[in-house]
Design a binder for these strands. Structure first.
Length: 295
DNA sequence: AAGACGTGGAC
DNA sequence: TGTCCAAGTCT
């Protein structure tokens, strides 16, 4: 059953993008596919301004997958610093190893090969294929999902994510020309990130306000299923894990059990955090104490 | 397939 | 202040 004809958003959005695109360094013409891949790992659930300095430093230090793969994972986790979700650092290191082992040190260009890399999911695989190699594939992130929900479907917020549905919706909007398709993938994300925002969308400056289904319907409030509430961070296992990782990063030697116990009052929760980190491979227990993973 | 996973900024 | 959100992925 065909969905209703989607409005032709790409020309107007791309025209807007040509002018409004932020000059993000990983969008520069001369950056390598590896640099793009690194940016996409860092940008998962993380804002641009927090990524910028970490990305610059990372690319300077590890300009190729092989250069990262040659170092212990601990170095990757340290360089990740406080970007958050440190397992991404582990995954990026592992992906670098996989690229060296399976692809001769060159970031693969195919979505399937990219998908097979550790830490690379539907979004990142297509983002790298599209942005680093110009492959004509739909790229859908949270920003694009919101733009489509509003402009096409007339809803204030997207339905819960469904990779198949989201990719189909973006495919219907994607220009035929690979060049314009690549631009539109980036432009839709940029529109969602800077104009069609979650909080206070700036419809007054939106390039497709004249054909936005949501605006046309009178900007009705969202009435779909609510997103699960995010658990409070203060006092959470996540916070404790973060504190332990901060300790392990700072210490360039094994941290003793006694030292660890000093960073959080609740010993049971601390124990749970430590076990979790070990299970995740972010920490290893030696005879001397705990350290970041060397492998 | 719902829930876990860091951290910080904005309102 | 607390709540929501942020270029997702994995189990």
């Amino acid at each position: 059953m065909p969905r209703p004809a989607a409005p032709d958003l790409a020309p107007a959005v791309n025209e807007w993008f040509a002018d409004a695109a932020r000059p993000l360094p990983w969008r520069a013409a001369e950056v390598s596919p590896w640099a793009v891949l690194v940016s996409e790992f860092m940008l998962q659930q993380t804002q641009v301004d927090r990524v910028l300095p970490r990305w610059e430093a990372w690319i300077r230090r590890w300009p190729t997958p092989a250069s990262l793969a040659a170092e212990p994972a601990a170095e990757a986790v340290r360089a990740w610093d406080r970007l958050g979700y440190p397992r991404r650092a582990l995954w990026l290191h592992r992906a670098a190893v996989e690229i060296v082992e399976r692809h001769g040190g060159e970031v693969p260009r195919g979505v399937d090969e990219l998908l097979a890399l550790q830490g690379v999911g539907p979004y990142t695989a297509r983002a790298v294929a599209a942005f680093a190699f110009g492959v004509r594939v739909p790229v859908v992130d949270t920003n694009t999902r919101r733009v489509i929900a509003r402009a096409v479907d007339g809803n204030a917020e997207p339905a819960p994510p469904s990779t198949a549905r989201d990719l189909a919706a973006m495919s219907a909007l994607l220009p035929e020309s690979p060049h314009e398709a690549r631009a539109f993938n980036a432009a839709a994300m940029e529109l969602g990130a800077t104009v069609c925002t979650a909080r206070a969308p700036q419809c007054g400056v939106c390039p497709v306000s004249d054909r936005c289904a949501w605006l046309r319907a009178g900007s009705p409030a969202y009435d779909g299923p609510r997103k699960p509430k995010q658990a409070r961070f203060a006092g959470s296992d996540r916070q404790v894990r973060g504190l332990v990782m901060r300790e392990l990063r700072a210490a360039h030697r094994p941290v003793t059990r006694a030292e660890i116990m000093g960073i959080w009052a609740d010993a049971v929760q601390l124990e749970r955090a430590i076990s979790g980190l070990i299970a995740d491979g972010l920490a290893v227990e030696t005879g001397e104490g705990m350290t970041l993973p060397e492998a």
